[in-house]
Simulated assay, not measured.
Amino acid sequence: MSAAVGEIPESMRCSVLRAAGELEVQQRAVPRPAPREVLVRVGAVGTCGSDVHYFTHGRIGRFVVREPLVLGHEPSGRIVAVGTGVDASRIGQRVSIEPGVPCRRCRYCHRGEYNLCPDIAFFATPPFDGAFSEYVTIADDFAHPVPDSVSDDAAALLEPLSVAIWANRKAGTGLGSRVLVAGAGPIGLLVAQVARVQGAAQVVVTDLDAGRRATALDNGATDVLDPRDGDPAARGVDVDVFVDCSGAPPAVTAGIGAVRAGGTVVLVGMGADEMTLPVSSLQSREITLTGTFRYAETWPTAVQLAASGAVDLDRLVTAHVDLDHVADALSPDPAAAHVKIVVRP
């Protein structure tokens, strides 16, 4: 550690997932920044559906919790120490952390597709610890400065905002686009907001919950639909882009049916590992179908959207908890009752 501000403690508190449904607050050594790394005192960490899934099931697909794991991959905070090779003037800087550091050497990294790097070290993805702790280290170029006009909560939520930016990039959303979004959770709401910022003329959001549909109207949606009232296409919805943020097979099938010939479908929500798709419809109408996996080079845009007020992240935060009550935030029922719960270590 080449430079630090004040006294850095030897130990810190962390919320550790020991097994599915079992969290424990532990004392661990405060990490020391390696060369080209910074040490961040964590100010806020957003909770995510993946955290809930790891807490509930102990795994997501091929990623299995085999050793104690610190969850949380949406952190913000303040740099309190830097490793060698990092300008000491960064100490004291408020930052939003991009939680996945790629190898920088593989063919995907060289193509700028570092989100697809097979050796990426991503917070809260086994075996890499996340940020439900008092301190974390991160590569210096993945600690993005944020202005004081962006709150700690909003700086943490630049991560889900980046998911929404990436989804809209993959969708090709632009001026006059007509967009359908399935799912009015945090990601769906942010996809809707970003779509409107990028010039979409129509953003229709579907969700089973009436409260979430109402929230969507305050977060970029021009129209909302209850899927139980019929498929969007049967109700006259005809869009250029469909973004699924639900992961529900019926929602995916219904959304595809509302996309114009030559349009685009983007799968963001993680639900069933396999599902049946209307292949003949996709083929005969030349619809582009793609998925998303995290993001790449989105933080500069995310910072600008939050700092300018073009996207309102603070309004998504509906509750706060400390490290002693992370389990309350990750229990499926309480989590479903909120838009976004933020942990403040």
Score class of each variant (00 low, 15 high):
L23A: 05
L23Q: 07
Q27D: 15
R28C: 06
A34C: 05
A34W: 01
R41A: 08
T47L: 04
V52H: 05
H53P: 04
G72S: 12
H73Y: 11
A81E: 05
G83I: 00
T84H: 13
S89G: 15
I91S: 00
V95C: 01
Y108K: 11
C109Q: 10
H110L: 14
E113M: 10
C117M: 05
D119R: 12
A124E: 13
S133H: 11
Y135K: 06
D140M: 08
P147M: 01
D152A: 11
D153V: 02
S162D: 07
S162G: 14
W166D: 13
T173W: 05
G183L: 01
A184W: 03
I187A: 06
G199Y: 07
Q202C: 05
V203T: 06
T206A: 06
R212E: 00
T215L: 09
D223T: 15
G230Q: 02
G236V: 04
D238Q: 12
C245D: 04
A248Y: 14
T253D: 11
A254I: 10
V259D: 06
G262F: 01
L267H: 01
T276W: 03
L277T: 08
V279K: 01
S280D: 13
S281V: 14
T290F: 01
T292Q: 15
E297K: 09
A302C: 07
R315A: 14
A319K: 15
H320K: 15
D328W: 14
P332C: 13
D333P: 10
A335M: 13
I341K: 06
I341C: 12
V343P: 11
